[in-house]
């Protein structure tokens, strides 16, 4: 069985905003047969917004601690994250520490205070869950597990920013990555072609601090999905998922739109298509219920 050193991140914890992402991911791992070993006592990566209080080194040290713990507990296993920001912060930290010897030395001085050491020499890759699914399993393999194809559902694949830039998924372009569409198709659903807000920004963390400006961006993301005839939106990122799902009422009030479109994780789609229960697919985590998926899960 394939095993990975797993970095869940703050939003995946019990009672946190992406708990449903975690639950559906655990379900598909059972079906596909891989094991996620939590990095023991992991800490927050400070995402992309920690920079006001945290300088370069303190922020790097956060990821360095996670990596050191991973080296200790799961030598040689790749580090895998489901959250786009976790993946990005961890991968950036690893690369920065590889390239900058003085930062690497200072990071280790700080880590020593916690009784840890980062070697950064195990050849670990820092990967997003989507990479694992596509590269270690592949569409063909995934297709073999589909028991209830998601027939007749039209889905806009909203890739967003941080699973796409600056690293992205190997073989995909920044401007028009196809992996969500391919995955949707693999599961038997119908991807929206030419979804023109596919890689647009939802405002990220600024949805909290600049709600009006961010909601204007979100409005266009949802509007374009409706224009493409979508029944629902699928995303690989907890920030995208939350931003695009939960502000629809406020956007409707402000702009007079009538948005009510479910926004689901790819892991929820997969879980339903794999024939797992509504609970396993975490359909009860939808603030806007995904009724078509509920029906398929109940069949």
């Amino acid at each position: 069985m394939k095993e990975y050193s797993f970095y869940p991140g703050c939003s995946s914890q019990k009672g946190a905003s992406a708990e449903n992402y975690m639950r559906s991911t655990n379900s598909i791992s059972k079906e596909l047969g891989f094991k996620l070993n939590d990095i023991p006592d992991w800490n927050c990566c400070s995402a992309s917004i920690g920079y006001a209080g945290g300088g370069e080194l303190p922020r790097l040290v956060l990821s360095a601690r996670n990596l050191a713990l991973s080296e200790q507990a799961h030598p040689k296993q790749d580090v895998v994250a489901t959250c786009a920001a976790c993946w990005l912060a961890t991968r950036e930290a690893k690369e920065r520490l590889e390239h900058d010897k003085s930062l690497f030395a200072e990071a280790n001085i700080a880590l020593k205070e916690a009784g840890l050491q980062l070697k950064n020499d195990q050849g670990k890759n820092i990967r997003h869950m989507v990479e694992v699914l596509i590269e270690d399993f592949g569409y063909e393999e995934i297709k073999k597990h589909v028991k209830k194809p998601l027939e007749g559902i039209k889905i806009a694949g909203y890739v967003g920013c941080q699973t796409n830039r600056p690293f992205g998924i190997a073989g995909e372009s920044f401007e028009n990555p196809m992996y969500l569409d391919k995955l949707t198709e693999t599961l038997g659903a119908d991807p929206v072609k030419n979804y023109d807000k596919k890689v647009s920004c939802c405002g990220g963390a600024l949805a909290f601090s600049e709600p009006e400006k961010s909601q204007a961006l979100i409005k266009d993301i949802i509007g374009a999905a409706y224009d493409g005839g979508a029944d629902m939106i699928v995303t690989p990122c907890p920030v995208c998922q939350m931003n695009v799902e939960v502000y629809q009422d406020q956007i409707n009030q402000k702009y007079g739109t009538k948005f009510k479109i479910p926004v689901v994780y790819y892991s929820t789609l997969m879980s339903v298509a794999f024939g797992q229960s509504a609970k396993e697919a975490a359909l009860d985590g939808q603030v806007i219920p995904a009724k078509q998926l509920e029906q398929i899960a109940a069949k």
Partner: peptide, 29 residues
């Protein structure tokens, strides 16, 4: 949808090795 937990106000999630974590961050700062 259980994506928010009101009990977090009482403390909530954190790392177990508080002292090591704080010392590390202090040193980095």
């Amino acid at each position: 949808t259980k994506r928010m937990n009101p009990l977090e106000i009482l403390g909530g999630h954190g790392v177990k090795d508080q002292s090591g974590f704080q010392k590390m961050l202090q040193k980095a700062t």
